[in-house]
Design a protein around this nucleic acid. Structure first.
Lengths: 208, 208
DNA sequence: GTCTATATCTAGATAGAC
DNA sequence: GTCTATCTAGATATAGAC
């Protein structure tokens, strides 16, 4: 049969480490990091365990890589949802929770990966994955704080924390009860808190 | 005074099944249900594994028993904290979160057992322990709803859910960041939401 | 009812060929 | 870089004596 360049990968075939990490991420997200075995990851990626361990030092490394890789895209989605609503803080928060509500309604959604992993590794507070989870949640809180810059710094910080509490309360209770409506109630509560702290912006969609 | 029957246990020695369940509960609470082995439970209880399996059919049975046993006492604590504040809903919610804030500051606190266990067993939605967790959280929500009976039923239900979202958001973020202050911010948010929905009661906090 | 001892399975990680 | 085959440790659960 005709020979093509043997070193070129087909366009639809990602490099092996990427395939392994993608397989691990999908399985971790669906079943949690403790329920997924290295065998299952290798199988899903179409490689053997030996190959997996050639590219990653340990399962813990894979878990950390999984969460680290999700940090930026998650934050980008948050920003995208809020930015689409303009500049009014209450409208932005409402839009953020609309996005979250759609996300948790996705049939494959099975909890916030950061929160779940932090719970599963709770006895290892220094685990790189736990550190990554903490940093991601902190980044969300900092981003929200910046969005409340019309308030004094202390008040902006408090309000951002309260919105975070409602986000993660939503993640927790949607997962526990398997009822996405909890995220909608969280969004309404968050919007009410924002409206209670910030005067509605002049212009835009505020009412007088 | 005649001697008591030799079959009576000394007062400080609880029956074996109780000792096993107590040991299991302490370990599950501290480390999570998956991280604790049956060996460790038996060791902590001062019995062998064989004795443990004589009294409990499986580890899953023990997990379910652990959460089922915590349902009532947890709810009783919530009621006690709120009742101490009288009848004003906002004051009751504030007191509830003060109690929660003290609880999560306890050096041995390591997350809400119901939430943690539900996460750890997330792939088994029908597991008796997950069902018990769901029922407990529902009971809290129903109790809160009843406390907002001054509102129309639908509004009372919504407000109760929002308070629950803040409670479990607090549990999650206190655990993740290892910072109890999150529970205080949650309490302030909950009180603000209650004050926004319910007119403050006339008279002192104990008027009925 | 409680013990010692063990069965059985699955996990993460490795050896060495090619 | 990828494979087949295996090691070792730990898990849940059980057998059978006393």
């Amino acid at each position: 049969m005709p020979e093509t360049s043997a070193t070129e990968e087909p366009a639809n075939q990602k490099p092996t480490p990427d395939r392994i990490l993608a397989a691990a991420s999908a399985l971790f997200q669906a079943q949690g990091v403790r329920a997924v075995s290295v065998d299952a990851i290798a199988g899903q990626a179409g490689v053997t365990k030996r190959t997996l361990y050639y590219h990653f030092r340990s399962k813990d490394d894979l878990i950390a890589a999984y969460l680290t890789a999700r940090d930026e895209p998650n934050l980008a989605a948050f920003r995208r949802w809020a930015d689409a609503a303009g500049s009014d803080p209450a409208a932005r928060v409402t839009a953020l929770f609309h996005g979250l509500s759609r996300a948790v309604r996705h049939p494959k959604w099975a909890g916030c990966g950061f929160l779940r992993t932090a719970v599963e590794l709770n006895t290892l507070p220094g685990h790189p994955a736990v550190v990554a989870a903490r940093r991601h949640k902190q980044a969300v809180e900092d981003w929200l704080t910046a969005g409340f810059s019309a308030l004094p710094p202390e008040a902006a910080r408090t309000l951002a924390r309260q919105v975070c509490l409602l986000i993660d309360g939503g993640f927790s209770l949607v997962m526990l009860h398997r009822d996405p409506a909890y995220m909608d109630r969280a969004g309404e509560a968050a919007a009410a808190l924002v409206r209670g702290s910030l005067p509605a912006q002049a212009g835009g969609q505020n009412r007088t």
